[in-house]
């Protein structure tokens, strides 16, 4: 299940607490974790903070990783949990704010103009449309297209049958191509 490179990194980190091993692990998966966080929180700044938070959690709990699944799927679960907790907290704090709560929550699903400074128009529009998809469709598409995960792996992560995933994948692509047909 776990690839040999990941196994070496984990062993090196657990036995020596090596910063080098930690750096290798982070560099290998930082974009993967960041992309997941970005899909959930739709904010570059929050996604950056969450990425760091996830790696701190991962390194602190690496001893507990049973290695019966791939490191990537373990990372995915930790990242999604962190994102869900983050979004929940943000909803609660925005509820107690004096400004318009519904607007705050709505904005979480859209990128603000200043967050687009890095992304080009094309990527910006695509990411914006991607975050609007239902969670299962969005995650199936992203994990399959960007992260090259097999349907079996995605099925384990999302708790959906392979048949259901394929339907979700097709629906996601259909919606995205429809939405972006006129814009891109």
């Amino acid at each position: 299940m776990i690839d040999s490179e990941d196994k070496n990194i984990i062993e090196e980190y657990i036995t020596n607490g090596s910063n080098n091993a930690a750096t290798r692990l982070i560099r290998k998966y930082e974009k993967f974790v960041f992309a997941i966080a970005l899909r959930y929180v739709a904010s570059y700044d929050d996604a950056e903070d969450l990425t760091q938070e996830v790696f701190i959690k991962v390194l602190n709990n690496l001893k507990k990783f049973k290695q019966d699944s791939s490191l990537k799927t373990w990372l995915y679960r930790i990242t999604v949990n962190a994102c869900i907790t983050f979004v929940r907290k943000k909803k609660i704090t925005s509820f107690f704010r004096l400004d318009d709560n519904s607007d705050v929550i709505k904005k979480q699903k859209e990128f603000s103009p200043e967050q687009y400074y890095i992304a080009d128009e094309l990527e910006r529009k695509f990411l914006n449309e991607l975050t609007k998809l239902p969670e299962k469709q969005r995650e199936t598409f992203a994990l399959r297209y960007f992260d090259n995960l097999s349907y079996e792996e995605i099925s384990q992560l999302l708790g959906t049958s392979v048949g259901g995933l394929k339907a979700n994948y097709f629906q996601a692509i259909k919606k995205l191509s429809e939405k972006l047909k006129s814009e891109i």
Binding site: A35, L38, Y44, T51, L59, D120, F126
Partner: peptide, 22 residues
């Protein structure tokens, strides 16, 4: 689309930041 470039620009020095925080 060059998503790699977008993600790269937001994950620069993540390892350094994480290790410093730890």
């Amino acid at each position: 689309m060059d998503f790699d470039r977008v993600f790269q620009s937001h994950t620069v020095n993540t390892s350094v930041k994480v290790l410093n925080k730890m």
